[in-house]
Structure formats: C-alpha cells, structure tokens
C-alpha cells in the first residue's frame, strides 16, 4: 500500500495477526489486518460475531499484543512494548468504552471518572476539577456522587464516556457501546459520539449493528479475521458498492 501520509496517521496497523492456542489448536482471530486511521476520524469496525472485532479492539487498545505485524500508535511502535510501557500508553493514549460499562461498583461516578487521572499521578484537587468537567460534558455533573447502581444504563454509559474522555486520550475505543442499552438510550449515546466527533475526537467504534455503522463517516468490515471492506460507513455497512479496494484511499 502506498501511504504517503504515514506520519500523520494516528493509527497504523500493518499486517497484524493474532493467533490463540486452544488445546493444541491454533485459532487465527486476525489474519493479516492492515489499515490506518487519521486523527479526528470516526471509524466503525463491523463484522459478524466471531469475525475478530474484539480481538482487534484489544490490540488497538494495547490490552493485547499482536502475534505478528506492526502497530504504530501516535508515532510509537507499540507492538513490542513491555507490559509497563503498555500501561502508560493505555493511560495516555486510549479511552475505553465497554459494552458492559465496566464502572467500579463501589465507587461514585466522580471517583470512577477520576481513575485514569489517578494512574497518571495527577493531584487530587486537579483530578476532581477535571473529572467534574468531564461529567459536565456528558450532562451528569448532578449525578457525580451517585454509585453506578443508582444510575440508569444510559447514565452509566455516559459516566464511562466521561471516564474515557477525562485524561484527553488520542482516541476513544468503544466496543459495542450501545449493546446493553435500549434503542432510545442507545440513540442518545450515538448522538453524544457524533458531538465528540464534531469536537475533533478520534473515535473507533466496534459494532455488529449495520444501522449504527452506517452513521459513521468510515467503516471497516472484518470477516474471518480479515478486512473485507473499508470505506464510507453507509456503503460498507449496507454492502453497497465495492468498498474493499477503497481501503488504500482516504
């Protein structure tokens, strides 16, 4: 692939594979995946269940390392980093949003949002101010002293989004963020993503819902661990046109 703008890309994935060994058998979850994502993009990763979306997400989020291939994040080769270095990368570059929210149940919304700042070593006072500001962004400042079990599903996901935003990472990684929400609440969250995209954030969204992917400016379709389509969200999600070969573009 001829990518002149390599340096400007936030994410550069080259021929990544991820092989799991299960009872002597090899499961090839990713079989040579390549693409780039620029700053400010909103990209959906779609595909059927078992196509490798979550595996890719974990690699992009530096929770997992590829078996082979090269992954450059914000100019740094993270595919060979140590565990401690990856922890720092996760803290500084990535904001996770999970399908099951993954809030700490015994801590308040505020404390949950503060967590990434704790691991960055930010003093308590500044932490609190920044976490409050992040909660304001998701319109939850009035709920900041509530525990997750006192919040609705949509509110929990907004707390999680505030937590992902608070440390100002290079990108937000969301794995089926609306999967556990009813459609109206899901719509709220999608609108929030659209706003965040408007504000210049880089968003990578894993979903199996074509309708959701169709609203993203760009989508990458995985099938059996390979990229089978990469192009405008509507086209890739709804299977219109031949978007696979458009991958090199953008």
């Amino acid at each position: 692939m001829s990518d002149g703008g390599n340096a400007s890309k936030l994410i550069e994935v080259q021929d990544i594979t991820r092989v799991f060994h299960v009872g002597g058998e090899e499961v090839r979850a990713l079989r040579g995946v390549s693409f780039g994502i620029s700053r400010g993009e909103w990209v959906a990763i779609i595909g059927q269940s078992g196509s490798g979306k979550s595996t890719l997400m974990n690699v992009l989020g530096c929770l997992d390392t590829p078996s082979s291939g090269r992954y450059t994040l914000n100019g740094k080769d993270v595919s060979r980093m140590s565990d401690d270095e990856l922890a720092v990368i996760r803290n500084e570059e990535i904001g996770f949003i999970f399908q099951t929210f993954q809030l700490l149940p015994r801590e308040t919304a505020l404390a949950n949002v503060e967590l990434p700042l704790v691991y960055r070593g930010i003093p308590a006072r500044e932490r609190k101010a920044r976490a409050t500001a992040a909660l304001e962004k998701v319109q939850l400042a009035h709920r900041m002293h509530h525990r997750p079990n006192e919040l609705s599903g949509g509110q929990r996901q907004r707390v999680a989004i505030a937590r992902a935003l608070v440390a100002e990472p290079s990108m937000l990684l969301a794995d089926e963020p609306t999967g556990n929400l009813d459609s109206a609440t899901g719509e709220e969250i999608v609108r929030l993503f659209a706003e965040l995209h408007q504000a210049g954030n880089t968003l990578v969204l894993v979903t199996h819902e074509p309708k959701l992917a169709a609203r993203c400016p760009r989508a990458i379709r995985l099938s059996d661990g390979e990229v089978v389509a990469d192009g405008p969200g509507r086209e890739v999600a709804l299977g219109i046109g031949q978007s696979v070969m458009a991958a090199g573009g953008t």
Binding site: Q102, L115, Y119, R120
Partner: peptide, 16 residues
C-alpha cells in the same frame, strides 16, 4: 477480577 481488568485498562501497572 473485573475491577482489576478495569484498573489495568485505565493505566494501572502490575506493581500498582
């Protein structure tokens, strides 16, 4: 276990 996973995802090192 999940709490540990969350903390690790948010940047906690092993020794933390």
């Amino acid at each position: 276990t999940r709490e540990i996973g969350v903390r690790r995802a948010l940047g906690a090192r092993k020794r933390t």
